[in-house]
């Protein structure tokens, strides 16, 4: 341990609790959502699925005369053989059967739509209430303006920050106490664009809510477009999480994990390559 390093209280209890509720509910929503998707593993653009145009994405399976099942993913008219992962994968007996996403990534692992919906429509409430609580908390405690909104100086340093990220050079010492500008923008985009779109497009699939304000879902291209956008936003969230976890690992896995569990983050005393203000 470097002399002069010290533990600094980085995350408030409320943020830590909401972070882990979010992790749990987002994971369960993704996995149950993929099982719901498997009930009809195709995506369309438009008001309905049957418009005369083919689906924009289809995870299908074909079977030859010997009973061998091949998984085929068709995306915008391009076909890919994806046996074992998409379109066809092993069931609990180890036989390759037709299914959109494989069982190891779905809840439940079998083609049980009713149960997948139970999980999804329960944790959707957990996720939404938690998300609204986070936004309310961030505004009320000024977490949003103090910690998440980029300063004017940061806006000007975006180019440098991109270069630093690509070289895996991350702020150290005192500078590591604040979120960097790319991190801030990523969090803001997820919290205020991707997640609201994800939730809204989920609600847009509800026929009852579609009747609330006449034709509102057409603003997003129709109900089947909403389903496609819901799916796309979910994978944008997955991409964000992969980058987020990668950054957590390369900037000090245990230090970061501890700061999101106990709240305490170790600030090293060594000089940073970027002078603190």
């Amino acid at each position: 341990m470097t002399a002069g390093s010290y533990l600094y209280k980085r995350h408030k209890l409320a943020v830590r609790v909401m972070h882990w509720i979010n992790v749990l509910s987002a994971l369960l929503l993704l996995m149950s959502g993929l099982q719901i998707f498997n009930a009809h593993p195709m995506l369309y653009w438009g008001k309905s699925s049957y418009t005369g145009r083919p689906p924009i994405l289809a995870l299908t399976a074909t079977e030859d005369n010997e009973g061998n099942v091949t998984g085929v993913a068709r995306v915008f008219g391009h076909e890919f053989v994806t046996t074992g992962v998409l379109g066809a994968s092993a069931n609990s007996e180890g036989d390759i059967v037709a299914r959109g996403f494989p069982s190891w990534i779905t809840i439940p692992d079998s083609s049980w739509l009713a149960m997948a919906r139970r999980w999804h429509l329960f944790f959707a409430w957990v996720f939404a209430i938690n998300g609204l609580a986070y936004i309310a908390y961030s505004i009320a405690t000024r977490h949003l303006t103090r910690d998440l909104a980029p300063t004017r100086r940061e806006w000007r340093s975006i180019g440098q920050s991109i270069k630093d990220h690509l070289r895996f050079r991350h702020p150290k010492g005192e500078a590591a106490k604040d979120y960097n500008v790319l991190q801030k923008l990523a969090y803001l985009a997820i919290v205020f664009i991707v997640l609201p779109l994800l939730v809204l497009m989920g609600l847009g699939m509800s026929p009852w809510l579609d009747a609330l304000v006449p034709n509102w879902i057409d603003l997003f291209g129709g109900r089947q477009s909403a389903r496609t956008l819901h799916f796309a936003a979910a994978w944008i969230l997955v991409a964000f999480v992969l980058i987020h976890v990668f950054e957590v690992v390369v900037t000090g896995l245990w230090n970061n994990l501890r700061s999101m569990i106990t709240g305490r983050y170790r600030v090293e005393a060594q000089a940073s390559h970027e002078k603190p203000e």
């Binding site: 719901i36 009809h40 008001k47 309905s48 699925s49 049957y50 919906r117 109900r223 089947q224």
Partner: peptide, 12 residues
């Protein structure tokens, strides 16, 4: 009207 199946597809 639009018919929304629990499976995910819609037909009008």
């Amino acid at each position: 009207t639009r018919h929304d199946c629990v499976e995910g597809w819609s037909a009008i």
